[in-house]
């Protein structure tokens, strides 16, 4: 932090206002306006939705063609160094500084972020211990496995103690146990250590397991945003339905009747209805349309429903 930098404004940790980013003729972000609340926020979207571009714009790697970005109260375009001093970034791709062992690498990153050498080395040891690489800290990073590389990417993002941590696909290539441990670390940081976290992922369970808020992106646009609990719809009920007959047509009829409905890809319809409606209404509708219900199971609304609904509405 420099003495010249003014104190950051309270409020959302990051804010985008009509941000457009294009690569040549390809628009990666199309006039995105969004706010990242404090705490853990998930950035969801299929591959190519613009999640990584948004994070890179937040870090100042790409300059928006239009719009403004603010992070931790600073204007990204005008005070990029002040922003980056407070942000920790874990890139999606395999990234490290070649020829260094883990301690040297993480300490080096700490120094680059402004920590004096001795504290940087001390922090490197602590952070490596925290991410579960304590036993492997003197090994060359080049020789690490994929899972270990994910952990060290988190360590280098944490070493300078950022106020905002941007994690781009943090569980990529990790085995189930490693994935659980990584998600536990993210939860710990967000809820016990007061570090604001943005988790960019195309894996819905990862976001659901770590975040309270979510932003859903699709084709460069923001299609849904808010607390996950709210987006799921308080009091809404979900059903899994299999019918005999024209499922596509029945899904349309369900939507016309006010339910949210999408095919999960295996021929099962996931139907979300308001709190005053239930299985009886579904049976009644099926009866009037001459559709035979073969299977009906109550379920709970999930983030996948929110995602599918947001993406589906955009495509429609």
């Amino acid at each position: 932090m420099t003495a010249a930098d003014p104190a950051p404004d309270p409020g959302p940790v990051a804010r985008l206002d009509e941000v457009t980013v294009t690569y040549g003729r390809q628009a990666a972000l199309r006039g995105v306006t969004a706010e990242f609340a404090a705490g853990a926020v998930g950035l969801l979207g299929p591959n190519g939705a613009g999640k990584s571009t948004l994070l890179k714009a937040l870090l100042g790697f790409v300059r928006p063609d239009a719009g403004t970005l603010r992070a931790l109260g600073f204007d990204v375009a005008r005070q990029p160094l002040a922003v980056r001093a407070r942000i920790g970034y874990m890139p999606e791709s395999d990234a490290h500084i070649p020829g260094l062992n883990a301690v040297s690498f993480v300490a080096y990153c700490g120094q680059l972020a402004g920590l004096p050498r001795a504290p940087a080395v001390q922090r490197a040891h602590e952070v490596l211990q925290y991410v579960g690489l304590g036993e492997e800290r003197y090994r060359l990073v080049d020789t690490y496995s994929t899972g270990m590389k994910q952990r060290i990417k988190l360590a280098q993002a944490l070493v300078h103690d950022p106020d905002l941590l941007c994690l781009d696909e943090p569980t990529n290539g990790m085995d189930p146990r490693g994935r659980d441990e990584m998600l536990a670390l993210v939860r710990d940081l967000a809820y016990r250590k007061d570090v604001n976290v943005i988790v960019s992922s195309h894996l819905l369970p990862d976001v659901e397991a770590t975040c309270e808020h979510v932003l859903v992106m699709h084709q460069g646009s923001l299609v849904a945003a808010g607390p996950i609990a709210e987006l799921k719809g308080p009091g809404r009920r979900a059903f899994e339905l299999r019918i005999k007959g024209d499922a596509i047509r029945f899904a349309e009829e369900l939507r016309e009747a006010g339910a949210d409905c999408h095919d999960d890809g295996t021929g099962v319809l996931r139907v979300l209805v308001g709190e005053n409606r239930g299985a009886r209404d579904l049976f009644a509708l099926a009866a009037t349309r001459g559709v035979q219900v073969r299977h009906l199971r109550p379920s709970v609304p999930t983030l996948e429903d929110v995602f599918a609904q947001a993406i589906g509405e955009t495509d429609a």
């Binding site: 870090l59 790697f61 160094l81 002040a82 980056r84 001093a85 942000i87 920790g88 970034y89 890139p91 791709s93 395999d94 990234a95 490290h96 500084i97 070649p98 020829g99 990153c109 680059l112 972020a113 402004g114 080049d142 280098q156 993002a157 300078h160």
Partner: peptide
């Protein structure tokens, strides 16, 4: 070249340096 091979540039440039 070695930094580019290891994608280290995004590590460097995500830190407060130009």
């Amino acid at each position: 070249a070695n930094d580019r091979r290891a994608n280290a540039l995004q590590i460097y440039l995500a830190k407060p340096l130009t």
